[in-house]
Amino acid sequence: MLLTEVEPSVNPLMPATYRVVARRVETDDVVTLSLEPTSGPSLLFRPGQFNMLTAFGVGEVAISISSAPGAPGPMEQTVRDVGAVTHALCTAKVGSTVGVRGPFGTDWGVDELDDSEVVIVAGGIGLAPLRGAISYLVDKPGRTGQVYVLVGSREPDQITFPDDLERWERDGAVVKVTVDNGDAHWHGAIGVVTTLLPTISFDPARTVALVCGPEIMMRFTVRGLADLGVPLGSIRVSLERNMQCGVGWCGHCQLGPLLICRDGPVFAYSEQLERLISERER
């Protein structure tokens, strides 16, 4: 059962124009843009999907949608400044126009998780593609499964969406944050995010885990979850590669037999996937 209907476009290479209606600085290199279409309704999406954002004159890049579908307010996309295009997006002024193509890819499947316990593990900017999923799970009426949100960050001032973390905790999620390096004001956990796993009690047989972050972090987190008894197939990860079209034609996002834009970015884990992401230079 689908959460929302996805509307295909006739030529998926043609962007729609969206205006930046708000801009929020999250950390020293992360910005969240609020986007509204210049005409017509905003695109419908499921948490975990991504859009191809165009900074006109600079280029295009795949960015996860970080808001929840159906939430009030404009669609949000959180961008980390790591290159020419993301820099242009991070510095885009309110009122400027960007191009949006999408949504593309597979989603976290949150609409199937009403009764599961859900353990969400986010590393660094990996919280952005999970944000919409977490809000959906926390806010959905009638859900019975407990939601755990485990966040790992390099330093306390790199933690993204602190207001959401507090809000989710108020609304019933178990939220734990850890950093690699603390500072004088930090009274929370220190250590890699996998060290938080033994501190929550969840039933591995009834749990689905959603994991997103740098690939090293995802590999270790999956191992940590598996060692606690979560079946590999109940763990979902979000992968990333070079993307230039979003629709399986440009050939750049290949990972062995998979096309990340079409078969991912969200994947249920498996032995085969583990072998794939363990292979060097695949």
């Binding site: 290479l13 165009t54 006109f56 280029g59 295009e60 230039q244 079209c245 440009c250 050939g251 750049h252």
Partner: peptide, 25 residues
């Protein structure tokens, strides 16, 4: 072989063009 790369350029009159061209792995 079908891989294709995309590149955006600006023209002298301020228009932006996106081209698609053959790419190689």
């Amino acid at each position: 072989c079908f891989c294709g790369a995309v590149s955006d350029t600006t023209t002298v009159d301020g228009a932006v063009e996106r081209h698609r061209r053959w790419d190689t792995c």
